[in-house]
Design a protein around this nucleic acid. Structure first.
Length: 266
DNA sequence: GTTCTCGGCCG
DNA sequence: CGGCCGAGAAC
């Protein structure tokens, strides 16, 4: 005896929420599966928009897959398809991910965000506070999460990491250079104010107490004119390299497309 | 009236 | 093709 309709617990949702799958047993769409969710109060939801409306701004359902009931990373998408003739042009296969957003913990629950005290009723429309969205509370040494992240090419090989100037030293109880690099790079991306490092010596002695959280976990540093000149040189060289690569790629595409039109004519 | 179920639209 | 929702059927 099989009970098709079973209200299942749903790990991605808060306690008390249930998920139900109903197989259509007749009609043209027989076999299709409809998914419903039930709030702890028993209210039934038949679509993501409906769920979204009900939960309001307290929850971001962007990565929530209604059908499976799980959170999905946006990157879990298309795998490479093989094309023999493109084998030497596979550079285009997976476009590099230019997203500079920081990697954050993605928990199983849609309630990954900090607890928000809801004062208003969910059905009321409230202006979204954009400031709030970009200034979520962070863990004190949150940069440690960046540890181990590497730049890698599409071929998965790890690229040579940047080397940090000797003047840069970490303040955190973690002295790895990669973490420091990530922390500084993140700070440069995320903050619109100057990055100075931790300017008080107190922070160096006991960062857990004196850390200036708007600055990276880095001792104060001085950028010299020579540092700047060296950096300019690196940029110029990088631009040349990029230019060459783009030229080569453009040529390859031209050849490829002309070959395509020959094929069609045949 | 409410709930269940499938059709069908639309992206 | 699948998500979403309308509306008729069922209760």
């Amino acid at each position: 005896m099989i009970m098709e309709k079973k209200r299942m617990d749903c790990p991605s949702l808060p306690p008390g929420w249930k998920k139900e799958e109903v197989i259509r047993k007749s009609g043209l769409s027989a076999g299709k599966c409809d998914v419903y969710y039930y709030s702890p109060k028993g209210k039934k939801f038949r679509s993501k928009p409906q769920l979204s409306r009900y939960l309001g701004n307290t929850v971001d359902l962007g990565c929530f897959d209604f059908r499976t009931g799980k959170m999905m990373m946006p990157s879990k998408l298309q795998k490479n398809k093989q094309r023999l003739r493109n084998e030497n042009l596979t550079i285009n296969k997976g476009k590099p991910d230019l997203n500079t957003a920081l990697p954050i913990r993605q928990t199983a629950s849609i309630f990954k965000q900090p607890v928000t005290k809801v004062v208003n009723h969910p059905s009321n429309k409230v202006k979204t506070d954009l400031q709030r969205a970009t200034e979520q509370p962070r863990q004190l040494f949150w940069e440690k999460r960046l540890k181990g992240l590497r730049v890698s090419a599409i071929t998965e090989e790890v690229l040579r990491s940047m080397e940090l100037p000797k003047g840069l030293t970490s303040v955190a109880p973690d002295t790895s250079d990669e973490t420091l690099l990530s922390a500084i790079a993140s700070a440069l991306h995320m903050s619109s104010s100057p990055i100075t490092g931790q300017t008080t010596s107190a922070a160096e002695k006991n960062p857990a107490i004196w850390l200036n959280t708007s600055q990276p976990l880095c001792k104060a540093f001085i950028v010299t004119d020579q540092d700047i000149r060296e950096q300019e040189l690196k940029v110029i060289q990088a631009r040349r390299t990029l230019e060459d690569a783009l030229m080569a790629d453009g040529l390859a595409r031209t050849v490829e497309s002309s070959r395509d039109s020959e094929d069609e004519a045949a």
